[in-house]
């Protein structure tokens, strides 16, 4: 049975009716029409659906929508409002870190979370933060370089 939950998404408060079996990803894409977050594998393995839940990156395809009750979610749409987004976007453009773009929102959220943890991540820390994200176009090198550009 659907139940109302109270939550904050992209700094906006919501009261939404959510069926218990709905994932956070389905809530975002199908109910709130925030389609920036992508569904890749749907099994938590590819990273395309990454969003921030209370500042921590999580895979929204394996989080139930009910679990965000009383918590704060930031999606790629929310990030767009901040200065960081512009910097990350420009670094991606400068390093040709986007081809088809399907994995990009997930990568950008993981990078944002990394930069929240440390302003000067090492190569190892960058690899750790992005290691669970799949990209079938770029070969990863350019994405790694884009992050390095942000660190400089």
């Amino acid at each position: 049975m659907a139940k109302e939950i109270k939550t904050t998404i992209n700094n906006k408060k919501y009261k939404i009716e959510v069926p218990p079996q709905m994932t956070l990803l389905e809530l975002l894409r199908e109910k709130l029409i925030m389609t920036g977050t992508k569904e890749g594998c749907g099994n938590g393995e590819c990273g395309a659906c990454t969003v921030l839940l209370n500042d921590k990156p999580v895979r929204s395809c394996i989080v139930l929508a009910h679990e965000i009750e009383g918590k704060e979610v930031i999606t790629i749409e929310g990030l767009k409002e901040t200065g960081d987004f512009k910097e990350i976007k420009e670094a991606f453009i400068a390093e040709d870190a986007v081809q088809c773009g399907f994995c990009t929102p997930g990568f950008v959220m993981a990078i944002k979370a990394l930069l929240n943890r440390t302003k000067t991540p090492t190569d190892e820390e960058i690899k750790e933060a992005l290691g669970g994200h799949l990209c079938r176009c770029t070969g990863y090198e350019s994405i790694h370089k884009a992050v390095k550009r942000l660190v400089k």
């Binding site: 938590g44 921590k56 990156p57 999580v58 895979r59 394996i62 989080v63 993981a110 290691g131 669970g132």
Partner: peptide, 9 residues
């Protein structure tokens, strides 16, 4: 274990 996001959960 898994990857960064999985380890958080």
């Amino acid at each position: 274990f898994g990857c960064y996001e999985i380890r958080n959960r």
